[in-house]
Amino acid sequence: MAETPNDLLKGALNLLVLRALRDESRHGWGIQQRINQLAQDTLSINQGSLYPALIRLEKKGLIKSKWGTSEAGRQAKYYSLTAKGRRQMGTETELWKQFSTTVNFILDKA
């Protein structure tokens, strides 16, 4: 099935978004910048794909949003973690680590 890589990426993106929001609330572009910063610009994803991900996370109740004013004085939508999102981030981080270790292990052996 062609969808698996997508699902994997989506899952990863979700986790990255949660991670980017760990310390403070950010608007969409800010989240993007934060991910780039954390990845030290090694990760290249379409910036637009961030928005469907945000909506999905918000629907799941992992993040919440609020309109606010940016540093430049512009209207922007700010996202922040909910308690549930914070918990989810913890468990998913663990899962991801385990998963990637296993996959790496197998790939290295081959």
Partner: peptide, 17 residues
């Protein structure tokens, strides 16, 4: 360019909604 298809993601967001 770095954003990817503006309308495509809009559509995807709508779907998510």
């Amino acid at each position: 360019r770095s954003f990817g298809g503006f309308d495509k993601f809009k559509e995807e967001s709508r779907e998510a909604w």
